[in-house]
Design a protein around this nucleic acid. Structure first.
Length: 419
RNA sequence: GUGAGUGUGGCCAAGCGGUUAAGGCGCCAGGUUGUGGCCCUGGAGAUCGAGGGUUCGAAUCCCUUCACUCACCCCA
């Protein structure tokens, strides 16, 4: 029996899957270049307080999903459970308000949440996300949303839906929450146990309940988008206008509230069409105008988006999208006998010095075995050194795809390989 | 945290109480003297997830435990 395996909810990304990762990383980097977003990398762990304050005490993440620990100095630290707060922390810490605003940043990083794993859900997963910081212009919201949609389109992911909502700001939301509370209090006997608790602690999340019994209630519930203050209404109207200009279709969903407390005004999610189950969200985000203040900075608005890389790959595979293959090793070097092996060792070193990928046969196996190996590796060509070649100062250069070969000097073979 | 399903060599998988636990993929080696991809032959590799119990006898039955998978909650 094997003594150790990857911890629950984590997995190894094996070579045969790397092509998917590179495909996404390259697409992401290209889009970010196109939209002027610059990469930022923040530590894997942060002060626990950063997450507690920004995400919210009464969220699932803070209540039961954080990987927190005391280090040897007694600091309470937490493995990053989401990407936005660290970026905001870095913005404040490095005085980025002195840069031209808005500051556009992106990250690609592992995320840790203690959850029960299932399809498309892990304890460690990767997220790609980007944030526009220092502007409350609804055009920035639109840009972020459009950029997210373009990402999926570029990856080849079709059949996605964009869900959109506005949950107001600290001026208009309290009043809305009061309405909501009143509405649900009257129906308290009909609520599921979870919702009774939500009514006490996190009213907004009542809308999120998927229980059969609560569904009809949420349908009738007051909508946040009907209670927006003038500024929020304006913001939302402009956003929708820009989305139309971008030619983006969106579904207004008054039940969309998101699971993090820091959102204000805009919230959105992108989901694959036709996938059932609740964990299929590809990505989501929104505006968080109070977050910087909450973690001790000057008031700084922001809007962002994050998407799960494993979920993108899951959908890429489901939709049968073919990703570009990783470059294969080019030339395999086979030999017969120790003397030839000595020569081969020198040759591969020289090849690599000149930028030509080379793999030396292992051990002292039969030529048949060596070529079988070359074939299995997908080598496009092979160099063979036997006794005759050693004697004549030549090598055999074999084209593995065409099954043709000829004798050349090593130097001539090098020239060919460089082309 | 709750519910369901599954655990047999690296992977897939038969076997469901009785002698040395099929088969396929993969790996290794051969098929005459220095040559791959197809084919043929052979080989290595399994304390049948772990622990306990029932039995003359268990991979096969029972209990416990662990892991994995899927679903719920919630999220990416």
């Amino acid at each position: 029996m094997i003594l150790y395996q990857a911890p629950r909810g984590t997995s190894d990304i094996l070579p045969h899957d790397q092509a998917y990762w590179r495909y996404i990383e390259e697409t992401v980097a290209d889009i970010c270049r196109l939209y002027g977003y610059q990469r930022i990398d923040t530590p894997v762990f942060e002060d626990s307080g950063l997450f507690v304050r920004s995400i919210g005490e009464d969220t699932d993440i803070v209540e039961k999903e954080m990987y927190s620990f005391n280090d040897h100095g007694g600091d309470l630290l937490t493995l990053r459970p989401e990407g936005t707060a660290p970026v905001c922390r870095a913005y404040l810490e490095h005085g980025m308000h002195n840069l031209p605003q808005p500051v556009r940043l992106y990250y690609i990083t592992p995320i840790f949440r203690y959850e029960r794993p299932q399809a498309g859900r892990f304890r460690q997963h990767w997220q790609f996300g980007f944030e526009g910081l220092g502007s409350s212009d609804p055009a920035l919201d639109a840009e972020v949303i459009e950029m997210a949609c373009v990402l999926y389109r570029r990856l080849g992911l079709r059949d996605t839906v964009l869900k959109l909502n506005s949950i107001g700001c600290r001026n208009c939301r309290p009043q809305y929450l009061k309405c909501l509370e009143e509405y649900y209090s009257k129906k308290i006997d009909l609520l599921c146990p979870d919702c009774k608790r939500r009514l006490e602690r996190n009213t907004l999340r009542l809308l999120d309940c998927k229980q059969e019994s609560c569904m009809p209630l949420t349908e009738q519930a007051p909508k946040s988008s009907d209670s927006l203050c003038a500024e929020c209404q304006d913001h939302f109207d402009f956003l929708k206008k820009y989305l139309v200009i971008f030619d983006l279709e969106f579904d207004l969903d008054h039940r969309l509230v998101r699971g993090l407390d820091y959102y204000t005004r805009t919230v959105f999610e992108i989901q694959p069409l036709g996938e059932k189950g609740a964990q299929t969200t590809l990505g989501g985000g929104g505006r968080y105008d109070d977050l910087m203040e909450e973690i001790g900075g000057r008031p700084t608005p922001g809007v962002g988006f994050a998407t799960g890389i494993e979920r993108m790959i899951l959908n890429i595979k489901r939709q049968g999208i073919v990703v570009p293959p990783l470059p294969q090793p080019t030339t395999f070097v086979a030999f017969l006998g120790q003397e030839a092996k000595d020569k081969a060792v020198g040759y591969v070193a020289q090849m690599r010095r000149e930028g030509i990928g080379a793999i030396l046969a292992s051990g002292n196996r039969s030529l048949k075995a060596q070529l079988r190996h070359a074939n299995a590796l997908g080598a496009t060509s092979a160099i063979i050194i036997g006794e005759d070649e050693l004697r004549d100062g030549m090598i055999v250069w074999r084209d593995m795809t065409r099954s043709e070969q000829q004798r050349l000097s090593f130097e001539d073979a090098l020239k060919r390989l460089k082309k």
